[in-house]
Design a protein around this nucleic acid. Structure first.
Lengths: 144, 144
DNA sequence: CGGCATCCCGGATGATACTG
DNA sequence: CAGTATCATCCGGGATGCCG
């Protein structure tokens, strides 16, 4: 998606934001956007979704290895939460040693698609953000 | 965006996720996705961005009122963080009483666009997630 | 009005040890 | 292998009070 930004064009964006906020206030007094963010805004959920989305099916320790620095406990907790939300499917095989496989549900896939925009943004603008932060720190220092 | 999900089609999603993860591992050892998520994954950042995107320019207490239940402290902290990241512009008017206005930068607008997919997903699937959670809770209870 | 400093609590997260 | 249980820790974030 290519976006050109001029002085008088942010109306497009404004409409976007207004639509989200408006839809968000329909049903309950609790904004669904905040609700979902509370769920997947934690440290590991989206990483799990990304990795599961990238590899289709993963065993517990495979997923753990891919993410790298997640503790066993937190991976368990996170996966349970995702399972409860209907985003991840858990499949236990009655074997010795045990084997447990995880994969995204259709709902999880749809979230992955919705998230892809944010993911590509992160990769595209990471440097820009880093620079902005440096500039801000410098400004603060000189004014401090 | 309309998405049809069949058994043999998740390759599309897999490619999505793989691309994000792949891009994310290029530059540094620190994944930009996680970095950005750490920034905007907190309780208030995205809400600020949404409201600023919806209204263009807002004063401190206007924004606070719109969000509703954010403490003064957290709104300040959040806005500072967003400013440091180059997502929000802060404008102080030398008046008495003081007036401080906030608005999104172009970078902030681009993030809003990237986020819109997630926002609409949240609104569209909030109910589905709620149902899944209920079903999960019921399952857990019966299995005890 | 907008913001900073201080205190403090609770939940999120980690480390470690044990189990089916 | 894939957890569960327990304890320790850390930090987000709320409450309050003061300031320019």
């Amino acid at each position: 998606m290519h976006v050109t930004i001029t002085d008088n064009q942010p109306l497009v964006f404004r409409a976007e934001a207004q639509k989200i906020l408006q839809d968000a206030q329909t049903a309950a007094s609790i904004c669904p956007v905040r609700h979902v963010l509370d769920r997947i805004g934690d440290k590991w959920s989206l990483l799990c979704i990304l990795h599961l989305g990238a590899t289709d099916t993963l065993r517990f320790n495979e997923l753990r290895k891919q993410i790298g620095d997640v503790s066993q406990r937190m991976l368990t907790v996170t996966l349970r939460s995702l399972e409860a939300d209907g985003l991840v499917q858990r499949h236990v095989y009655a074997e010795v040693p045990p084997r447990v496989e995880y994969q995204l549900t259709p709902l999880g896939h749809s979230l992955l698609v919705a998230f892809s925009g944010l993911g590509t943004w992160a990769n595209a603008h990471a440097q820009e953000v880093a620079q902005a932060r440096q500039a801000f720190a410098a400004r603060e220092k000189s004014e401090g």
